[in-house]
Design a protein around this nucleic acid. Sequence first.
DNA 1: ATTTTGACTATGT
DNA 2: AACATAGCCAAAA
Length: 105
Amino acid sequence: MTPFTERVIHIIRCIPEGKVMTYGQIARHAGSPRAARQVVRILHAMSKKHRLPWHRVINAKGEIAIMDDEGSHMQSFLLQAEGVQITDQRYISLEHYQYHMQEDA
DNA sequence: ATTTTGACTATGT
DNA sequence: AACATAGCCAAAA
């Protein structure tokens, strides 16, 4: 387990209920600003083993990124159960972001 | 050592 | 707003 992977896992575990973060935000907070795709790999590999709140991770457009219907429906179900507003079965409203875009400083 | 692989992102049209 | 393209980068093969 590499330090980068551990940081990513820690960050994801810290996302509070009812909030979401984007892949890019997580990558930045883990110290590798452009490694968003790496976050994808880590989530895929570690979500079960570490019992991560994988459903609180979305893409930069504010939508559920899962490809297959099974997974995306599960994600929207879990998010709505936490009070996250979802429109059109995929878009998360901005007030649920843990961090806002301009705070990248 | 080199290539492939993504649940991505920024940018340009 | 929707689509195409070109970067991106760590882990796996």
